[in-house]
Simulated assay, not measured.
Amino acid sequence: MLAASATAFDRVSAPAVDMAARIPVASPNMPRAADLAPYLERIDAAGWYSNFGPLVLEFEDRLAARFDRGATVVTVANGTLALTLALEALDLPRGSLCALPSWTFVATAHAVRMAGLVPWFVDVQTDEGELTPAGLLAALPEAPGPVTAAMPVAVMGRPMSPAAWRAFQDATGVKVIIDAAAGFDAAASAEVPVMVSLHATKTLGVGEGGFIASEDPVFLSRLRAMTNFAFMGDRVSRHVATNAKLSEYAAAVGLAALDQWPTTRNRYAAAARHLRIALSDTTGVTFQDGWGTGWISSTCVVRLPPGTTDPVEASLTASGVDTRRWWGSGCHVAPAFTDCPASALPVTEALAACSLGLPFFSDLGGDQIQKIASALRSALAGLKS
């Protein structure tokens, strides 16, 4: 369970429901102590704990093997730092614009600002809420300044096309990094750099961590240096950088999680399939295209009829079913980013008003699924009466 997810306000204002009977919106799936033991013994034997040790390098190789065309992987201490350092590794003019969707988690926009660029929020173009190369190309003439980078987002882990974004990059000169934070399952190619989060809430997590996959060795070499004080095989700090290395202990968790991945994926897919079946006769509830059938993630975000999200959320909460608006109302309304330029965002605003995260995790039980489905049907039916 996400023990730290509730605020003091949530605890005071939430209806009095037996907490033991509540269904949390998420429950991380992490390797257990016994799964880690063989890797911890290797750490003890080697006496190597950080600084690109043998477990980190093995973990990176196994991650890279999941990608096409010989991509290489660089691990980073967390996903937000991975995005930040990847942008910095491109050595773009500070103060220039980075185009990104407002329909994303705030970490995407934080990374842009931390890298010295200015977020330019562009509306998404598809029913799935994705910023597309064609949509951004059409928006570029209206940019309020020089656009040097773009950071499209894999919506809740949905598959994207790095090849299409590489074509966009080649045509425009705008550098592209894909934020596929929740996309471990779907990410399979890296014609442009792709970031995947390894946070505990993701389908494959190490606690805190992330990685960048890319086919560009020069970029990856600079990114690696950015995680280690800009050292490049010596003790010379060549430019401003930081310390963002993954430890051997985090790599041990990652290797154990990879050992279990086929079983873990099957459990997520089975839970998704059962939840889809349970809600198949519920009018007005729409799942992401392919979620749980062609690809999996650790969240379930559904689309509800316009104007129903607030009362449905309140009804589910009263029934002991937790929910989450994972991306809120979009980054553009967060105080940290209200001074950033934005195009008109009608699709973003519509998605924010009708999207709701339901409880979903790998060991979601049959009784829990039936409770979620029943509570959601009752909430929607109550709005019609």
Rank of each mutant, 00 (worst) to 15 (best):
Q370I: 02
S5H: 13
Y249T: 11
S102Q: 11
V301A: 10
C98L: 12
L304M: 04
S385I: 05
V347G: 04
G209K: 14
A251L: 03
V301Q: 12
M160R: 15
S189K: 06
F231K: 13
R222C: 08
V218H: 13
T75V: 08
P346C: 08
S378T: 11
A65P: 02
A143D: 09
D310V: 14
A46R: 14
K371T: 08
P119W: 00
A164P: 00
A375I: 12
Q288Y: 15
F9I: 06
L204Y: 00
P24V: 09
P162I: 11
A379L: 06
N29S: 11
G173Q: 07
S329E: 13
R11D: 01
A250D: 09
R235K: 10
A241K: 00
R66M: 02
M151S: 06
D61R: 13
V285A: 14
V333I: 07
W291I: 15
R11K: 10
P159G: 09
E208H: 11
G357Q: 01
L316G: 03
E215M: 12
A270S: 10
E88F: 00
A225G: 09
T317M: 11
R324H: 04
R158G: 06
T227W: 07
D289P: 07
A21F: 01
A181Q: 04
T201F: 02
D234R: 03
D10P: 07
A77K: 03
L364Q: 04
F229P: 01
V122P: 00
V301D: 13
R62K: 12
A109R: 03
P24Y: 09
S50I: 12
A99H: 04
D216E: 15
V192L: 06
E142I: 05
T132K: 10
W120V: 02
T293N: 10
A350E: 08
G233M: 11
F184W: 13
A318N: 12
P152T: 07
T286K: 14
P193E: 04
D10Y: 02
P15L: 11
G365C: 05
G205L: 08
S221D: 15
R276E: 06
L140I: 08
E313H: 03
T104D: 05
A318L: 03
Q125N: 08
L90C: 03
P119L: 04
A138R: 13
A375W: 11
